[in-house]
């Protein structure tokens, strides 16, 4: 798996480094510019968000390449190695964005009203644990969701896999939303809230609202749900790659 990761990183090195470089330059540029504080923050937020999106798309393409390219499919590795390698790749990318964002965050720390931090720090430990676990499983679930859609799309068709994938994505999302609603009777957008929560987290700000939604024990239900689905997705991906997807 590590070897796969190494070569995935090398293959995409140009893109990854370029995005990071532009992001850092952008932030430095903003910090040094004479614009208003709010404007600076917005621009930096947008830059970080764009970087995160580019990395996300890149990660999906890396996974796609791993499951369908001849050179990868010939390798004597476990099928799920392709998944682990892509996930770790995604984590590394996210960390990169977070670190850069944290740098910018430091700058804004002294300049903004940070009273809400105080509230957050007073939350009990179990909430923090729940928060972290939830963030991790939701991220993993989110990526696996994309991966399984890609794997299924490639299993079904050779041409126009992108559109099939898009369709599958919409259908599957709707089904998942409906299921979550059924099982937990909560706001069906909660899963999405978690995703947006994650990204906003990456840009150094935390919306107060989502935080209070995490408090309490009702996170356990969706945690287990997403965990089980993640495992199911892994099986589906493995089946698709081994039995259906042809390497080109």
């Amino acid at each position: 798996m590590m070897k796969l990761l190494k070569y995935d990183l090398r293959r995409n090195a140009n893109l990854l480094l370029a995005v990071c470089a532009v992001l850092i330059l952008c932030e430095l540029g903003m910090i040094l510019s004479p614009a208003m504080l709010e404007v600076k923050m917005v621009v930096i937020l947008i830059a970080n968000f764009t970087a995160a999106v580019i990395f996300m798309i890149n990660n999906l393409r890396v996974f796609d390449y791993n499951i369908k390219s001849v050179s990868r499919r010939l390798l004597p590795v476990n099928t799920l190695s392709y998944v682990w390698a892509s996930l770790v790749y995604a984590i590394l990318n996210t960390l990169a964005v977070l670190v850069v964002a944290a740098g910018a965050g430091m700058y804004f720390l002294g300049r903004f009203d940070t009273s809400f931090w105080g509230d957050a720090l007073h939350l009990p430990v179990y909430v923090w644990i729940g928060l972290v676990l939830e963030a991790v499983i939701t991220t993993v679930y989110g990526f696996l969701f994309f991966y399984v859609v890609i794997a299924l799309a490639r299993s079904i068709t050779k041409k126009g896999a992108f559109w099939v994938g898009l369709l599958l994505f919409l259908v599957l999302s709707a089904v998942m939303d409906w299921l979550e609603n059924l099982l937990f009777g909560q706001d069906s957008t909660q899963a999405f809230n978690l995703v947006t929560f994650h990204y906003e987290n990456g840009t150094g700000t935390i919306t107060h609202d989502s935080l209070t939604a995490m408090a309490g024990w009702n996170w356990l239900g969706s945690f287990v749900f997403e965990l089980l689905l993640s495992i199911a997705f892994l099986f589906v991906i493995k089946w698709c790659v081994e039995k259906r997807i042809e390497a080109r």
Binding site: V70, R73, L74, K243, R244, E246, A247
Partner: peptide
């Protein structure tokens, strides 16, 4: 050949 090599089912 692709089938023998395991690239295609």
């Amino acid at each position: 050949m692709q089938i023998i090599a395991g690239l295609t089912p």
